[in-house]
Design a protein around this nucleic acid. Sequence first.
DNA 1: CAGTATAGTAAACGTACGTTCACTTGTCAA
DNA 2: TTGACAAGTGAACGTACGTTTACTATACTG
Lengths: 203, 203
Amino acid sequence: MTDTKEKILITALHLFARDGFEAVSVSTIAGELGMTKGALYKHYANKRDIFNTMIQRMFDLDQSVAQKYGMPEQNFNVSTDGYDSVDLAYLKNFTLAQFRFWTEDDFASSIRRMLSLEQYRSEEMGRIYQEMVVSGPVQYLADLFRAMMNTGRMKVGDAHSLAVEFYSPLYLLIAMSDNKQEERDPLAVLEGLVDSFIGRWRV
Amino acid sequence: MTDTKEKILITALHLFARDGFEAVSVSTIAGELGMTKGALYKHYANKRDIFNTMIQRMFDLDQSVAQKYGMPEQNFNVSTDGYDSVDLAYLKNFTLAQFRFWTEDDFASSIRRMLSLEQYRSEEMGRIYQEMVVSGPVQYLADLFRAMMNTGRMKVGDAHSLAVEFYSPLYLLIAMSDNKQEERDPLAVLEGLVDSFIGRWRV
DNA sequence: CAGTATAGTAAACGTACGTTCACTTGTCAA
DNA sequence: TTGACAAGTGAACGTACGTTTACTATACTG
């Protein structure tokens, strides 16, 4: 029962991430699982309910990942507390882990692609997508850099611009990884750029 | 006649850019223009024909823009000829113009958002999107940097990594600009980062 | 063992889709 | 003036959609 409900969620997520919510039919989801669409309504109230469950799952996952890597919780709301123990070297590990998370983790990668397809449909979806992988991380890093500058753990500069500079390669390389046939190892490129950044801004 | 056909194209493009091709109905497009859907088929063979015309228009536009700014033609195929007269200062102007083009030009901005919504639906759409605003520009810049290094117009380094470093802020700021309520001027941030890059890599 | 959820099927519901067609209108050249 | 053509209407086509319903088989629980 719970197993079937979970299979529906993951199957639907994969389809939504490729074609978008509206372009995927309930019949297709059910067919992919070898069942009829009627059975699907024993587990979810309607099509939108499947989608909403994914979003809820994503919010839950985000919190647990932030805790796992010891970073101050984002929860898609930036807080300026708890930055005291973070330095540039630790930030590097977190950044590489973030890349792997958004490209290799099946759920995270799928939800990211799905939300990128829904981001213009409503103000709410746009906000969620932005806070998850666009302006959210930038805002977060800017606050982090400001805190590090104030406590002498980093040279002083324009925190917002530096946040854009630091985060943008991660964002671009994630987008590039959606396309296969990439010859260069994106993780090596990312690591090189992070090292270069650290070399220029560490005290 | 030609005027109506053009209005249909632009109206459909705006709708496709917000909701995606499949989620927009022919009735909605016609209704937006105050006509019935039957009339629409006097101008386009079917719904897909409207979409294909947009793509063709985009390829045409890309060529003319590349010529306008005096850059060697991309045409979504990277060529290593014609890089001789380009230097880092000129590249800065081109980069700022590119940002304005992809965010302010109505057609370019709409087609970019539409293709981002279609990029996972087929291998072909993914390739077009990538070559237009993701790996295409990176490849192009890498070739450009290599040529500049070989002729002593730029310090020597890893061209591909530098291309990612140079292009990624542009790509991220374009994505951020899709979300309003941005307080900082993205063009100023971009210009600052480009200046910083030039300062580090000019001979 | 009887009874009651649970998880599934198959068919039907009304609605909306993309597309076609017969028909009407206006324009303009022969 | 007439006749062809371009552009639009509105209804109809068949199909597919999301959802509901009546029914069935299975499995746990008193």
